[in-house]
C-alpha cells in the first residue's frame, strides 16, 4: 500500500474519532476486519490488548502497529503522523478560535453534536469489545437487528472468567486509576491461566 493512502486512511480516523482516540477502535474494526479481512477478529483483539498494556495513548500504539504490519518502520511513522495530523491542526485552531467564539450558536451546536457522536461511538465500541472478549461466538449488531425484527431470541454464550473481569473493572473504575486496572487484569488473568 502506498504511504500516501496509508496517511490518508489514518488521517480519516484522526478526523472522525470524536470523544478520544479510543473511538478509532470501531473505525479500525470496520475497515481492517469487516471490510478487508486484513486481520481476523482474534488478531484484532490481540492487537488492541498489546496497545492497551504498553505505555502511551492507545490509538497511537494501534496506529503504529498497524502501520508497521502494512509497510514496516516507515509505514508505522506514516500511520502515526496521519492519525495525529488532523488532531494537531484542529486543536491548534481551536485554542485560538473556539474559546473566543464560545457563545456562538454554531460552536454550541458543535459542542453538543460532538457529545452525541462520542456517545454513539462508545456504544459501538462496547459492541466490538463484547464480541472480542466476553461472547463465545461473535454477535454482530446487525444480526441483533434481525433478531429484533424476527422476534426470535439470540443464543449467546458467555466466557464467565472474562465477565468477572468486566464486573470488577466496572466496580473499580470509580476508585482506582485505569492504569492500575489494566495492569491488574493482565497480571491476574495471566496468573489464573496457570492454575
Amino acid at each position: 500500500m502506498s504511504y500516501f493512502i496509508l496517511f490518508l486512511q489514518f488521517a480519516k480516523y484522526g478526523l472522525l474519532c470524536f470523544g478520544g482516540g479510543y473511538m478509532i477502535i470501531p473505525l479500525l474494526f470496520a475497515d481492517l476486519v469487516q471490510k478487508t479481512a486484513f486481520l481476523s477478529p482474534e488478531s484484532f483483539g490481540n492487537l488492541l490488548s498489546v496497545s492497551q498494556v504498553t505505555p502511551g495513548a492507545v490509538s497511537i500504539n494501534t496506529a503504529t502497529y498497524v502501520g508497521f504490519m502494512q509497510s514496516g518502520v516507515v509505514g508505522s511513522l506514516v500511520a502515526t503522523l496521519g492519525l495525529c495530523f488532523p488532531t494537531f491542526i484542529l486543536s491548534s485552531c481551536a485554542v485560538h478560535f473556539l474559546f473566543k467564539y464560545r457563545e456562538h450558536p454554531l460552536t454550541i451546536a458543535f459542542f453538543k453534536g460532538a457529545k452525541w457522536a462520542a456517545f454513539l461511538m462508545i456504544l459501538y465500541a462496547v459492541g466490538v469489545f463484547a464480541n472480542i472478549s466476553v461472547f463465545q461466538e461473535p454477535v454482530h449488531l446487525s444480526s441483533l437487528f434481525n433478531v429484533l425484527s424476527s422476534g426470535t431470541v439470540a443464543h449467546i454464550e458467555l466466557k464467565w472468567l472474562e465477565v468477572g473481569f468486566l464486573m470488577a473493572s466496572i466496580l473499580l473504575a470509580r476508585r482506582i486509576s485505569f492504569t492500575y486496572i489494566i495492569l491488574l487484569s493482565a497480571v491476574v488473568g495471566g496468573g489464573i491461566s496457570f492454575l
Binding site: G45, A118, K159, F165, A168, S169, A173, S185
Partner: peptide, 23 residues
Amino acid sequence: ILAAFNCVRAAVLGMFIVLAVRL
C-alpha cells in the same frame, strides 16, 4: 499471554461501559 490479553480486553469493556453510562 493470550489469557492475560483476554482479561485486559474484558477490563477495557468495563471501562467503556462506565464511560458510556457517564456520557
